[in-house]
């Protein structure tokens, strides 16, 4: 456990000693805030639906930007070679880094708590969807972080890592928006694959075990793929 924590603390420190973290947090708040409030008064409803509708799409870009350096930088610098000679297993390295990402995403979401507080002053805000939405956001963030870690473990180049992760995240986000092209039988399958579909269930305030299982499986799958990718480097 101390091994996982050491890696996690190191990653966490890395974020805040470089301007990257601040830039990413600012961009995230700017985009999500602008899209939310630009239509908020037009719709004239005291809900965070628009914010949560957009979140999978915004996360598809923001999370790969956070995770792109995680392994790519270590490979590029060569520090991965030292890391491997520590008495530490691949899984410790992966979990340490994953934990740091997840904590960062929770931090990223903190300032947006001001939206529901603000909205609750304007009208009667239903708390269920808000709480569900935030829980869902953490699940979604975990899954996308795992995808980001996997992409970063494939390459030395941070740009490549970013592009690969974004493509995978967008695939899971947008797959249910293309359903009208498909025969009816496939729709259920594609809907089930879609991360935005499952996330929207959370954002409706429904916490269903099927959605939890979906995000757990997606996270686990990509953490496992990261493990395979690291193991194959040797």
């Amino acid at each position: 456990m101390h091994k996982i924590m050491s890696i996690c603390i190191k990653e966490w420190k890395d974020y805040f000693f470089s301007p990257m973290a601040y830039i990413i947090i600012s961009i995230f708040l700017l985009i999500s805030g602008w899209f939310f409030f630009s239509t908020f008064f037009l719709i004239n409803q005291a809900s965070l639906r628009d914010f949560f509708d957009l979140l999978p799409f915004v996360f598809s870009f923001i999370i790969p930007a956070i995770t792109m350096k995680v392994f790519a930088e270590e490979f590029n610098l060569g520090s991965y070679e030292i890391l491997i000679t520590f008495p530490i297993r691949h899984i410790h390295i992966i979990l340490g880094k994953f934990l740091a990402q997840l904590l960062f995403i929770i931090l990223l979401l903190m300032p947006t708590l001001s939206y529901p507080i603000f909205v609750s002053f304007l009208g009667d805000l239903d708390l269920g969807p808000v709480v569900g939405g935030y829980i869902g956001a953490i699940f979604l963030g975990a899954a996308f972080s795992a995808i980001g870690l996997f992409a970063s473990s494939l390459t030395k180049s941070q740009i490549n890592s970013f592009i690969i992760a974004t493509i995978i995240c967008l695939f899971f986000t947008l797959i249910n928006r293309m359903l009208f092209f498909l025969p009816e039988k496939l729709i259920t399958i594609f809907n089930y694959l879609s991360s935005s579909y499952h996330f929207q269930n959370f954002a409706k305030g429904v916490i269903d075990s099927r959605d939890i299982i979906y995000f757990f499986s997606l996270t686990f799958l990509f953490i496992y793929l990261t493990f395979l990718s690291l193991a194959s480097r040797q």
């Binding site: 890395d14 610098l77 060569g78 520090s79 991965y80 070679e81 030292i82 520590f86």
Partner: peptide, 17 residues
């Protein structure tokens, strides 16, 4: 084995920050 060995690669890849 990892407890017995100390290894420093050629490029001395320490975290610069």
């Amino acid at each position: 084995i990892k407890e017995l060995i100390g290894y420093l690669p050629e490029s001395v890849p320490l975290y610069k920050n």
